[in-house]
């Protein structure tokens, strides 16, 4: 990825964020923060060191977690350097 204005399709995005810390938001509003281990075409996700947040509050931790893709609203990558 050269400039920040380069075209970036979903598959490019996923290559970028594999193995990186992400936030996955589900349709029910729950956030999962952890390391993105892998995912497939259904947006099924395997995460490591996952923390579950409901209404912004930490509710549970999972060593490994599988998230079923139909529940996924978005996958958010945090910029390593802000601005």
């Amino acid at each position: 990825m050269s400039g920040s204005t380069a075209k970036r399709n979903p598959s490019d995005f996923l290559k970028q964020v594999l193995g990186r810390p992400v936030v996955v938001k589900l349709n029910n509003g729950t956030d999962y923060r952890g390391t993105l281990a892998c995912l497939d075409g259904y947006m099924n996700i395997a995460m490591e060191q996952t923390e579950e947040y409901v209404d912004g509050k930490l509710k549970a931790k999972y060593g490994d977690a599988f998230l079923r893709g139909n529940n996924v609203l978005y996958i958010c990558a945090q910029k390593t350097v802000k601005k």
Binding site: P10, F13, L14, V17, V23, N27, M43, G69, N70, V72, L73, Y74, I75, C76, A77, Q78, K79, K82
Partner: peptide, 11 residues
């Protein structure tokens, strides 16, 4: 506010 996301097209 979110930096960079992949949004599921489903919804």
């Amino acid at each position: 506010q979110l930096d960079s996301i992949l949004l599921n097209g489903n919804n």
